[in-house]
């Protein structure tokens, strides 16, 4: 077995007296699609918030590609190669696809102290290429994200993560509020990630979706991991049992 890409050791997090994470340890292999399931308040959001730099753990260690890391901001995690796609979308609906692709990471033609002139041509061209790579056929990168369907938006978010060569993609309830056909499309994206050499962590409370596209299932309850098996060695009944 290869070395894990993410190693989590003894992670703790308290929210004013509530023990949200109680010593969670988890190794994730490269190219794996891990399904993270659990009820509301089970600690799965806290875990991925820590992995994506939105929150800082109170205790415990995270290693990324073997090196200990401490993500203080979402940007730290993004720079390391962990991209998160959130439930309510990491897109600004009032902005174009091309602008959304590069929020916070805009290509610049000239800059002083981090602020500079956008390379809009590069943004458009890279957006068109990135959308084509995820098999998403949109007519123009200038269309507003607000005019896209929910599934198309998740597609753009995934295209963005791939454009920035993310090694790990965390998908936080990406299928919520999506129509059946759109959901299938997003699940298809997730399945294709391992072929592209991307590790996926897929958070969902829909067990069917997780079984459909993940190699491994991790279940959480009350801030602890209560089940961790390859998908082939567990069943929905067993999962229901532990949750």
């Amino acid at each position: 077995m290869t070395d894990p890409i993410i190693q989590v050791q003894g992670l703790h997090k308290w929210y004013s007296g509530v023990h949200a994470l109680n010593g969670v340890s988890l190794d994730i292999q490269p190219n794996q699609a891990v399904g993270l399931v659990g009820d509301n308040g089970a600690g799965k959001s806290t875990l991925i918030n820590i992995l994506s730099g939105m929150q800082i753990a109170d205790e415990g260690e995270i290693r990324f590609e073997g090196r200990p890391v401490q993500f203080r901001t979402p940007r730290d995690a993004m720079d390391a190669g962990i991209e998160t796609i959130y439930q309510y979308n990491s897109m600004v609906p009032t902005m174009s696809i091309a602008r959304n692709m590069f929020i916070g990471r805009e290509p610049l033609r000239a800059s002083v102290g981090g602020v500079g002139i956008l390379d809009r041509k590069a943004m458009r061209e890279a957006s068109i290429a990135a959308l084509r790579d995820v098999d998403l056929h949109l007519r123009s990168p200038d269309a507003l994200v607000g005019e896209l369907s929910g599934g198309q938006r998740q597609g753009v978010a995934i295209a963005r993560a791939m454009h920035f060569k993310s090694k790990v993609m965390i998908l936080d309830e990406p299928t919520n509020h999506l129509a059946v056909k759109e959901t299938q499309k997003v699940l298809g994206f997730i399945q294709s990630l391992s072929e592209l050499g991307i590790t996926a962590i897929f958070i969902s409370h829909n067990i069917h979706h997780v079984f459909e596209c993940c190699d491994r299932i991790v279940a959480m309850a009350r801030g602890e991991i209560v089940l961790d098996r390859p998908t082939s060695e567990t069943s929905m009944d067993e999962l229901h049992e532990v949750l």
Binding site: Y86, N89, S90, M91
Partner: peptide
């Protein structure tokens, strides 16, 4: 336009 997205993208 959408503060949570801007924050999540590290702005």
């Amino acid at each position: 336009g959408f503060l949570p997205a801007a924050q999540a993208m590290g702005i």
